[in-house]
Computed example of a mutant assay.
Amino acid sequence: MTALRASSLPGAIRNEVARLKGAGHTLLPLGGGEEGKAPMVRAWAGPGLTLAQILAPMHRTGSQAYGVRLDKLAVVDCDSDDAELVAQLEARFGASPVHVETPRGRHLYYRANGTAPNLRAEGLPVDIKTGARSYVMGPLSLRPDGWFYAPAKGVLGVDALPILRRVTATKPAPIQTGQRHDSLIKEAIAMVECVESAEELTANLASIRDDRCDDPATIPDAELRSIAGWAWARRLENQIYQGRNSAFRVDRLALDALRGCANDADAIALLVLLVDRHGHTPGKRFPLDFKAMRAAGLLNLSVPRLRGARRTLEGAGLLRLAGRHRAGSRPQTYVLNRLNPGVGSTGNVEPMPNAQHGSVQRETGGRV
């Protein structure tokens, strides 16, 4: 007789999934993607899964995350846990008895009430997710990166949810023909960090097309899928730039190249500052005026230490001289390089320096 394999899932998450499934909610096993938020089943917007179909992939992969599909639900997804923002939203849509803390903010649960307004268009860091093609991480979910979805108020599946209250708001100006494509791209960039998939982003763009664009019938679904796919790819590659309200990438290879240097802490601090200021524009040339940088409070290092950090970055191949000083007309300028072996033939990537000789190979137009 073959013994049954013991489940590696914590009892709390197994019981929560079983309880919510029994309460009539449609659930999904999550665990795919970089943040572990993607469904682990195909056609997840189709018929609801059985409890075994939900738990089996979680058990097999060790995932402790599941999604609540929003067939008849609406979730106000706040990117901020600011108490004033939450109070503003509940004053507008009605008080929600179920709140769940998320890595960025908070989920407020309601029953669905038709098409939800686009709060991003109103300048709020909030999305309203609803429908069978939308889902959110369920309470007690634990992502692979350690972020936990903690119940903050009430119990989903126990507390009766009110209908999301319809509120008449000032309707944004219609998007005119000739501006529609660019406007949809801007909307995609604004929303892409807050959706769970390219498909959800496409659905959100379809709502904007139908509600705000002139002559929406002439914007095909294929155009929306193309825009959403482009924005989703940029998100995965960490190439979405939204000013100071954005993240930027520092390659681990760059940090590896600096660790162990005599002034590695200074060099890493200078590298992070330069990537922050200039790394989003491939091949950008910039001067290094250390006195001005200190005066602006960008780095609290002495000028000799900053010069030493610059030399370390140059020696590691992370920074190169791009233009020499010309008295009275041009300062000395530099360009950031990217260490990325195996892609040196790409037009916007600098090849990795020779590790044995420390020499920088032929320039191909640096990018960080």
Results as ranks from 00 to 15, higher is better:
Leu142Trp: 15
Ala112Ser: 00
Pro139Phe: 14
Tyr110Gln: 08
Val98Asp: 04
Phe148Asn: 13
Leu119Cys: 03
Glu122Thr: 09
His107Ser: 00
Pro117Asp: 07
Thr102Trp: 08
Tyr149Gly: 11
Tyr149Thr: 12
Glu101Asp: 15
Arg133Lys: 11
Thr130Asp: 01
Gln88Phe: 14
Ala87Leu: 12
Glu101Ala: 15
Ala91Thr: 13
Val136Tyr: 01
Val98Phe: 10
Leu119Asp: 01
Thr102Pro: 00
Arg104Ala: 14
Lys129Asn: 05
Ser141His: 11
Gly146Tyr: 13
Gly154Tyr: 03
Gly105Ser: 09
Leu140Met: 12
Ala121Pro: 10
Tyr149Gln: 10
Ser134Trp: 11
Gly105Glu: 05
Gly154Gln: 06
Pro125Phe: 03
Leu108His: 04
Gly94Cys: 06
Leu119Ile: 04
Gly105Val: 08
Gly114Arg: 10
Ala150Tyr: 14
Tyr135Trp: 02
Val136Arg: 01
Leu142His: 15
Arg92His: 08
Leu108Ala: 06
Gly114Cys: 04
Asn118Gly: 04
Gly138Leu: 09
Pro125Asp: 07
Ala132Val: 04
Gly154Asn: 03
Leu124Asn: 04
Phe93Lys: 03
Ala150Met: 13
Gly131Tyr: 01
Val155Met: 11
Ala150His: 14
Ala150Val: 14
Gly123Arg: 07
Thr102Lys: 08
Ala121Ser: 03
Ala95Lys: 08
His107Arg: 04
Tyr109Ile: 07
Gly146Asn: 13
Arg111Met: 09
Arg111Lys: 00
Val136Cys: 09
Leu89Gly: 10
Thr102Cys: 10
Thr130Pro: 04
Leu124Cys: 05
Gly154Met: 00
Gly105Tyr: 08
Tyr110Asp: 03
Ala116Val: 00
Gly123Lys: 05
Pro117Phe: 00
Gly138Asp: 10
Thr115Phe: 05
Leu124Lys: 00
Arg104Glu: 11
Ser141Trp: 10
Thr115Met: 02
Glu90Trp: 04
Gly146Arg: 13
Pro103Arg: 11
Arg106Phe: 10
Tyr135Asp: 07
Tyr149Lys: 12
Ser96Arg: 02
Gly131Leu: 03
